[in-house]
């Protein structure tokens, strides 16, 4: 949908409006990995490998081939932002939910926030703590 109009008073001030419906190709997830024990650390590569193995376990080779991007990862907090093509969101989410261990140690992925807009993950009102 495009609406536009020109105005003579301001030369550059033509008006344009575009509505992009379902235009995002990707979905973004903010997740963290929780361990039952304390003091376990993973580097970014191991973290991504864990996600791929989770996908492979639930969805087989097709799942493992899903192009998941680890956009950011913090080793200290095990907090990460993932990007996945929109058609693979349910596959990724289910694989993350059903993963229960890393090297025989119990763990779980917690999904904190999801959005089709990466910018939405920059601000989460549910994490707003007022003191």
């Amino acid at each position: 949908m495009i609406e536009s109009g020109d105005d003579k008073g301001f030369k550059p001030a033509s008006y344009e409006r575009i509505v992009l419906k379902n235009a995002s190709e990707y979905y973004y997830l903010k997740i963290y990995l929780e361990f039952q024990e304390v003091g376990i650390s993973l580097n970014a590569v191991e973290f991504k490998q864990l996600i791929i193995s989770a996908l492979k376990r639930l969805h087989g080779e097709v799942g493992a081939a899903l192009p998941v991007d680890v956009l950011s990862y913090e080793e200290k907090t095990l907090l990460a932002i993932l990007r996945v093509p929109i058609t693979g969101l349910v596959k990724l989410w289910s694989a993350l939910t059903l993963l229960d261990s890393y090297q025989n140690r119990k763990c779980a992925f917690r999904v904190i926030q999801t959005s089709p807009f990466l910018l939405a993950l920059a601000g989460n009102s549910r994490e707003l703590v007022l003191d």
Partner: peptide, 21 residues
């Protein structure tokens, strides 16, 4: 399973000082 919920991104362009902005 393959379709995600609808989302919208609305983009508008004009001039700050335009009277009808």
């Amino acid at each position: 399973l393959r379709e995600t919920p609808r989302h919208l991104l609305v983009c508008e362009r004009s001039h700050v000082r335009h009277e009808r902005s």
